[in-house]
Design a protein around this nucleic acid. Sequence first.
DNA 1: TTAATGCCTATTAAATTACTAAGGATTTTA
DNA 2: TAAAATCCTTAGTAATTTAATAGGCATTAA
Lengths: 139, 139
Amino acid sequence: MKISTKGRYGLTIMIELAKKHGEGPTSLKTIAQANDLSEHYLEQLIAPLRNAGLVKSIRGAYGGYILTDIPAKITAGDVIRVLEGPITPVEGIEDEEPAKRELWIRIRDAIKGVLDNTTLEDLANHSNDETPEGYMFYI
Amino acid sequence: MKISTKGRYGLTIMIELAKKHGEGPTSLKTIAQANDLSEHYLEQLIAPLRNAGLVKSIRGAYGGYILTDIPAKITAGDVIRVLEGPITPVEGIEDEEPAKRELWIRIRDAIKGVLDNTTLEDLANHSNDETPEGYMFYI
DNA sequence: TTAATGCCTATTAAATTACTAAGGATTTTA
DNA sequence: TAAAATCCTTAGTAATTTAATAGGCATTAA
């Protein structure tokens, strides 16, 4: 029922690249240090993002990564699908009996609705918003 | 990003009990055989459901389990929370920076919206519905 | 009394997660 | 040209979770 660090850190990388969009490449080292993450681990996460065509690499000194499209055109869903696989609450929805199948489909579509309508631009811009007081975190 | 077999089989158990609600106890053996699942494994799943007060056991021959409330009053969310833990797409939402925090909260609330508004009655009754032709299973 | 059930604890194989380790390939700049 | 900074790739691994399996005791209806 959880998105793993793959998807989470992957989003972190993409948000950082979105913030620097148009300013040349950003290195993984920079991103790792800014977010207190293992650079080596991030390398393993960005490989699939590169293979999927979401980022482009520039090798050598002063290299790094850049987004292949503007932040408004890349969604959280794009990133999560690459790193976590298809968005679905269970494997093999189609094999379930109708009642449960419908439940999983509704959950899947609800998650999709959020992920596919949140762009990197949204995420990069609103990074300084406050959370409303008294918001319930665990329910 | 997945609900494990704990939650899935747990729901299966609860739907079976909902179908037999008012007809006396149903044994795990019956449920295991009807769904081709390991009875021993189901025992481990129903223990927390009993501890949480969602089902009541009747021991001895011709015993089994019954729901402690009517199927219309028990939701999929009740079952999933007991077996999978709190409904949240990531651990420690509160520690995330605002943009991601909001994303996780939106996802969580979307999932909650579905799970808490689907009752065992819904699931027990619609078990013979058909899935619309051409429905996309993986997106 | 026996068969059918629930109840409890322990063990385990496989998969996944979240890294760490090591080093090669490429490119910029001093 | 040398050095530094970066990307790129493969391999290994400790911890955790998943999805069971195994064995046996406790309770109760017939």
